[in-house]
């Protein structure tokens, strides 16, 4: 029997070191800023969106010109909502985010089809590229040992989120059971907390269909936004 030796890479060792250091540091500084950390905030964000479409499961005899539909770019949308920042066991920081997103997205079709003797390329599916969804995210926040942590705080955030499309799905998107409303995302990001007055953040979300579908969609979303404590606003 072959035994493979697992050797952690330099990157993973560095990552583990950062986690250990940040946990130790956050324990020291936590008591002073627990009150400023907790609470409801209002936020707004600019989003950049892209989706990747695999229409291999579509059997309907429908064609769309590939060059007209394919646009592998990130398109801008916007997002707004509320978030709750909290602490569990006086140690683990988290945030719960409730948002509404207006999504405009570039679309990359993974497959091209031909209909010889026509010379053009085709897709069998035309994805909706403008829609609105509701989103819920639960993020674990890890305090990073950067700068003077009594004043400014930098966090690495990680966690899942769920998007639910609330706009009408076009008929083209319902054929062959392709209609998708729910997406599950893995979120990764960074946040900058300025003394509890406001938070600047950038989150990257990588999502996929929550339920099985004949068309698998991979969503990529980058959110850059700002949140302000509700008690400071009202």
């Amino acid at each position: 029997m072959q035994i493979r030796k697992i050797v952690p890479s330099k990157h993973s060792l560095f990552f583990i070191l950062v986690i250990i250091t940040s946990n130790a540091v956050s324990a020291q500084t936590l008591n002073k800023d627990l009150h400023s950390h907790k609470g409801w905030s209002l936020f707004g964000a600019l989003t950049l969106n892209n989706q990747s479409i695999n229409d291999a499961g579509i059997t309907a005899p429908i064609n769309y010109l590939y060059n007209s539909e394919n646009n592998n770019a990130f398109k801008a949308g916007y997002s707004g909502g509320f978030r709750w920042d909290g602490v569990i066991n006086q140690q683990h920081r988290y945030s719960l985010i409730f948002s509404a997103n207006r999504v405009s997205t570039g679309t990359n079709y993974e497959h091209k089809y031909t209909l010889a003797p026509f010379i053009e390329d085709f897709t069998h599916f035309k994805a909706d590229n403008q829609f609105t969804n509701l989103s819920f995210a639960a993020h674990y926040k890890m305090l990073l040992p950067v700068n003077d942590m009594q004043k400014f705080k930098f966090y690495a955030v990680l966690g899942p989120s769920i998007d639910y499309k609330i706009t009408m799905i076009s008929s083209e998107n319902l054929i062959n059971g392709a209609g998708n409303r729910a997406y599950i995302n893995g979120d990764l990001g960074a946040e900058f907390d300025n003394k509890g007055y406001y938070i600047l953040y950038a989150h990257y979300k990588l999502g996929a269909n929550l339920l099985s579908s004949s068309v698998s969609i991979q969503m990529n979303r980058l959110e850059m936004g700002m949140s302000i404590k509700l008690k400071d606003l009202f």
Partner: peptide
Amino acid sequence: CLIACNKETATTQTDVMNNL
């Protein structure tokens, strides 16, 4: 309401093909 609305029906595909 969220689950029920906007589902594929028996005529979805023929409607789309007709429109094209």
